[in-house]
C-alpha cells in the first residue's frame, strides 16, 4: 500500500523526521556502548564529557583476554568458548527435536493435538527465574550443576517449543502434494522428507536455529544460577560479574558487551528476511 495516500510535502518531512528520531533512539544506546569499548577509561570519567573518542584503543579487548600488562579481570576467553559450545550444541539438538515435533503438528492429525501444542507453548512461558529454583535443587542432586551439559539440556528445553512453533508454520507452507509426488516417484516417506521437504524448509529451519542460538547465547537468569565457575559460566554471567567488583569497569564491560553482540549481529543479518517470515507465518497461517 505504498502510494495509496497522497501526502503533502510537510507531511512527508514530518514522517521522515519521526522515523529519524525513532531510529536514533534505537541506535544510539548501542553505538554509545560500542564507542566506549574503544575508549580509555579516563575519557569515560572526564568532565566535561568527551563525545568523540580522542584516543581510540583496543586496550579494553586486550585486557579482557589477558593480553595487556594491566591486571587481568575475568577469564573472558573461557566464557566465550563456554557460551559458544553451550549455545551451538543446544541449538542443534533443539532444532532436530523441534523439527520432528513441528513436522508432526504440520502433517498429521492425531488425538490431543491442540492440547499438546498449547502445552508446549505454555511450557515456554514458565519464567527462567522461577524454573531456576527447582532446577538448581535437582541439578545439584544430579551433580550436573556447573557443567555445560546441565545448561545445554535446559536450553534445549527452552528452545524446543518455539522451534516447534516456527517449523510447524514452515512445513505447513509446503504443499503435501510434493511429498506425495516424491513417494509416487519411488521415495520412501523418509527419503521424501529429506530430499523434498527438508530442502524446502531449510530457510525456516535456519531462522529457527538463529532464534534458538540467540536465546541460548543471551540467556542470563538460568545460567546465573546453574553455573558457578569458569567451567560453565557464559558471557552474560561474566558480564554481570563485572558489576560485582568494587569499581565499575565501564570500558571493560563495554568491550565484553561488544563481544556478546557481534555473533548475534552477524547471524541476525544473515537470516533477517526469514526471521520475519518465520514469525508471521508461524502465527497467521
Amino acid at each position: 500500500m505504498s502510494r495509496l495516500s497522497i501526502e503533502k510535502p510537510w507531511q512527508r518531512w514530518l514522517i521522515r523526521f519521526g522515523v529519524f528520531v525513532a531510529m536514533a533512539i534505537l541506535c544510539v544506546p548501542g553505538l554509545w556502548v560500542v564507542l566506549t569499548a574503544f575508549r580509555p577509561n579516563i575519557e569515560v570519567l572526564a568532565r566535561p564529557a568527551v563525545w568523540i573518542p580522542q584516543n581510540p584503543t583496543l586496550d579494553n579487548f586486550a585486557r579482557l583476554f589477558g593480553l595487556s600488562s594491566a591486571q587481568q579481570g575475568l577469564p573472558v576467553a573461557q566464557y566465550f568458548v563456554n557460551s559458544l559450545v553451550i549455545s551451538i550444541t543446544s541449538t542443534l539438538v533443539a532444532v532436530v527435536i523441534g523439527m520432528a515435533g513441528g513436522y508432526a503438528f504440520a502433517r498429521y492429525r492425531f488425538k490431543g493435538k491442540a492440547t499438546l501444542f498449547l502445552a508446549f507453548m505454555l511450557s515456554r512461558t514458565v519464567p527462567g527465574v522461577a524454573l531456576s529454583l527447582p532446577l538448581f535443587i535437582i541439578w545439584a542432586r544430579l551433580g550436573i550443576i556447573d557443567t555445560s551439559f546441565g545448561l545445554i539440556v535446559v536450553y534445549m528445553a527452552i528452545n524446543i517449543p518455539f522451534t516447534i512453533w516456527l517449523t510447524d508454520g514452515f512445513f505447513r507452507q509446503i504443499p503435501v502434494d510434493l511429498s506425495e509426488a516424491a513417494q509416487i516417484d519411488g521415495c520412501t516417506p523418509w527419503q521424501a522428507f529429506w530430499r523434498i521437504e527438508f530442502p524446502l524448509a531449510r530457510s525456516g529451519l535456519a531462522s529457527a536455529a538463529i532464534f534458538a542460538f540467540l536465546t541460548s547465547w543471551n540467556e542470563y537468569a538460568l545460567a546465573s544460577q546453574l553455573t558457578r565457575t569458569t567451567a560453565s559460566k557464559t558471557m552474560p554471567v561474566g558480564l554481570m560479574d563485572f558489576t560485582a567488583q568494587f569499581t565499575v569497569d565501564w570500558t571493560g564491560m563495554s568491550a565484553m558487551a561488544v563481544l556478546i553482540i557481534i555473533p548475534a549481529l552477524v547471524l541476525t543479518f544473515i537470516v533477517q528476511k526469514h526471521l520475519i517470515a518465520g514469525l508471521t507465518f508461524g502465527g497467521v497461517k
Binding site: N218, Y220, P236, L239, A264
Partner: peptide, 9 residues
Amino acid sequence: FPMMFSPIL
C-alpha cells in the same frame, strides 16, 4: 537491533 540484544546487555 534491540531484538538481538541480550536483556542483560
